[in-house]
């Protein structure tokens, strides 16, 4: 999925979030003012609806950038694969 296009970023929604958002992934063009994992999460929440509910501040959702858990200030760039992960329940 990564690197399919130089201009777009791939979002991946997993488990409960896939059900809530009704999609397993989507390609987006990053707004110029969205440069970090935290900004991307806030921008998605501003879509309203299920995005606002699931990504509200305080909801336990982790962001992974290119398969590594991100910190709020981790950069996001076109070409990245960014996943939204609900709390994990394996094992």
């Amino acid at each position: 999925m990564r690197g399919d296009s130089a201009d777009t970023l791939t979002l991946v929604y997993l488990a409960r979030l896939r059900d809530a958002f009704g999609a397993s992934s989507e390609r987006i063009v990053l707004p110029p003012d969205v440069t970090t994992a935290a900004e991307l999460r806030a921008w998605l929440a501003s879509r309203g609806g299920a995005f606002a509910a699931e990504l509200a501040p305080g909801r336990m959702v982790r962001v992974a950038v290119n398969h590594d858990i991100a910190q709020p200030d981790t950069p996001v760039r076109p070409g990245d694969e960014v996943a939204l992960l609900p709390p994990v329940t394996g094992g």
């Binding site: 997993l14 488990a15 409960r16 992974a64 858990i69 609900p86 994990v88 329940t89 394996g90 094992g91």
Partner: peptide, 14 residues
């Protein structure tokens, strides 16, 4: 390994 798997590895149960 199990404790970290439970909290860090991206698995989900339905």
């Amino acid at each position: 390994i199990m404790d970290y798997l439970k909290t860090r590895a991206p698995f989900w149960k339905k």
